[in-house]
């Protein structure tokens, strides 16, 4: 009761395994409201896995995840998720507008018709991402940067409190990258919480307020200027803890 606003995301002792091999091991993380967190780590460190586990798309072996203080997955409706670009079927028969409107479904209910307000709202979201001229294009006929922005527009339309984004900067042009960064900061200033998987170390420092360094273990989590040190980065990128991964896989197998 002392804390009226529950913490958006609390992860405790989370262990995740993929085909009998541990990918995440004993992760503890508390993300405060209004923070813009970058998740940094080498390839195969489990960055995307972490986000997907929060979304309930991957089963966890151990530990718990609290979303807005809710242990069960009810509060998942307050999350906006931007998937990795490769994970989407770009031949799917929907237009950019349709995708953005999907973000409104949570507000309109599943069965009721979409009203004009939702439509104008969705247009505004597209407008903000400079996509209004492309609203009626099938999503496969957009460029990489435009596709990414469509999904960001959808996240905007969702009006979530917590955003999880999987590599939004992957394969986009410089203009899109700037738009996205501006959007992230704007959302943060509105009091939203954002967690963004990022792999480019050179830009990580200027884009994010907080960083989570991840390599199977959470190596460090904190303000960017405290965490973005040579020593910690060395530990993140300096190879895996072989004994941990080997024993961990035996532990998972013994279940």
């Amino acid at each position: 009761m002392t804390n009226p606003i529950p913490i958006p995301l609390e992860i405790h002792d989370l262990t995740v395994a993929y085909e009998h091999k541990p990918v995440l091991y004993g992760i503890d993380l508390k993300v405060e409201q209004g923070s813009l967190v970058g998740i940094i780590g080498p390839n195969g460190a489990g960055k995307s896995t972490l986000i997907k586990t929060v979304m309930g798309m991957i089963k966890q072996e151990d530990g718990y995840i609290k979303i807005f203080g809710n242990k069960n997955h009810k509060a998942i409706t307050r999350i906006g998720y931007v998937p990795q670009r490769e994970s989407v079927d770009w031949d799917f028969p929907v237009t950019a507008m349709d995708v953005v409107l999907m973000g409104r479904f949570g507000h309109t209910g599943w069965f009721r018709r979409i009203n004009k307000r939702d439509r104008t709202f969705a247009s505004a979201c597209l407008e903000q991402m400079n996509l209004l001229p492309y609203a009626d294009r099938q999503i496969g006929n957009l460029s990489g940067g435009q596709q990414q922005r469509v999904f960001l527009a959808r996240a905007l339309a969702q009006q979530s409190d917590l955003y999880l984004m999987d590599e939004p900067f992957e394969g986009v042009d410089a203009v899109t990258e700037k738009t996205i960064v501006a959007l992230l900061k704007q959302l943060r200033d509105q009091g939203k919480t954002l967690m963004v998987v990022h792999h480019d170390l050179s830009t990580a420092k200027e884009y994010f307020d907080q960083l989570a360094l991840l390599n199977m273990r959470l190596v460090a989590y904190g303000n960017t200027n405290e965490v973005f040190t040579n020593e910690l980065l060395q530990r993140t990128y300096g190879g895996k803890l072989t004994v941990l991964s080997e024993v961990g896989s035996r532990k998972v197998n013994s279940h």
Binding site: D13, G26, R217, V219, V243, V247, R250, K251
Partner: peptide, 23 residues
């Protein structure tokens, strides 16, 4: 090992060790 090398907090390691010790 968990506290020194994998930088776990000392109060987090017991449960894991309970499982690991057997295998």
């Amino acid at each position: 090992y968990l506290t020194n090398e994998a930088s776990y907090a000392p109060d987090h390691v017991h449960d894991d060790a309970e499982k690991i010790e057997h295998i």
